[in-house]
Design a protein around this nucleic acid. Structure first.
Lengths: 214, 214
DNA sequence: TAATTATGAGTGGTCTGACCACTTTGTAAT
DNA sequence: ATTACAAAGTGGTCAGACCACTCATAATTA
């Protein structure tokens, strides 16, 4: 059992084991976890230790508990990590800048990946985008999300998704006509795999954003 | 009692009160918090409830506990949020390819940032790198880490650091002579801010890596 | 006197058992 | 078949008991 150097915190160990258990038993989102008493028995620890681990995960918003019912795996989209991040980390302005930088790195990479990809994307995808850009109001983050989805890097998408929420309103505003013009060109560049052109347009768009607001 | 649709979790309440207490008593970074028993008495709750709150904050890395000593407010620069974030994200998307892609995106971004930066880096930094490359055995991840550190994106560095651990051995092996040659050129490109050249060399290095092993 | 050792108070770590409040479920009465 | 009620299950909280560890201080020793 405790073969390792075990000066470590038990409750941290339980957190780890809970994750393992969730993976093993294939608990799906919204699914029910074993009761605290059962967990205590299965993991061979006291109920209070189990609770310390569960409460930690609850603070993170990873699980949800309902008295009289049980403990449930909560929707990822309800993770409280982002809020906590903002509360505790992002006090330093440098951090905010870091978030932007990192997020933009992911976006550029998506553009790069799409251009480099040998995969052929159906034409109608790009056409649909362009049409949408022209005819509807488009929120900035929507189109970028699509780009990253197309680039097929799910990890990158998840990280981006989290970082995005720090971008604040600018990312949730509608695109101006000027921006749309850039993006239509950008989409064409992506369609044709013209990486240089695409990245150049992206940078142009960033400049436009930074000039406009903040 | 009066449940004004306020299913107030006691331990969440305690978390809040703890933050209040830290603010009120002006506990500084590294400072000591009251003992669990004292907190329980002051907040009029059981010790186990206090512990659930404390353990939650500990999982976040906001406080640090040392058996026999006490509970201390930890340096918020040591927060564990990114780690947690990544751990849970990586749980789901097990695609190693995604990890590599994302990691490379961060590395490229570091290169890009350094080249674009108006900041002048002391010449001796680059010279020291080059010397090290020539004279010593250099582990791959070491030099890349330095690059990212120089790019001064701490968030990116943290994420990279985590992703790196999934890269496996290749990243912990020594560089071959061929690789060193590329990197010396790359360092020169960085020194001169030649972005195109630097990224091109980086890609060349990646190709070399992928051809060589796994 | 100075250095070393022993002691005890304080603290976090864990477990047990006991209630409480609430939800679900199964059963008995209608 | 429907309803009413009791029981079981679950999270929420508390109190008390040990344990392992740290540290300051007293006691012992050199």
């Amino acid at each position: 059992m405790d073969q390792t150097n075990n000066p470590k915190k038990m409750f941290l160990e339980i957190v780890k084991q809970l994750r393992q258990l969730i993976a093993d038993e294939n608990v799906s989102v919204g699914g029910k976890l074993p009761s605290e008493r059962e967990l205590a028995e299965r993991l061979q620890v006291g109920r209070s230790t189990v609770r310390e681990a569960l409460r930690s995960l609850e603070l993170l918003g990873l699980i949800e508990t309902r008295r009289g019912e049980g403990t449930f795996l909560s929707d990822y989209r309800k993770h409280r990590l982002v809020e906590l991040l903002s509360t505790f980390i992002l006090q330093e302005s440098k951090s905010k800048e870091d978030v932007h930088t990192t997020r933009e790195a992911l976006e550029k990479d998506a553009i790069h990946t799409i251009c480099m990809s040998k995969r052929l994307y159906a034409l109608h995808i790009w056409d649909a985008f362009k049409e949408k850009l022209i005819e509807e109001d488009v929120v900035r983050e929507d189109i970028i999300r699509e780009i990253i989805i197309i680039s097929d890097n799910r990890l990158g998408l998840k990280i981006w998704f989290l970082l995005k929420q720090f971008a604040g309103e600018p990312y949730q505003e509608n695109m101006s006509l000027e921006e749309k013009t850039i993006w239509i060109q950008l989409l064409m560049a992506l369609q044709n795999g013209e990486q240089q052109q695409a990245l150049s347009l992206y940078n142009e768009w960033l400049l436009l954003l930074n000039r406009g607001d903040v």
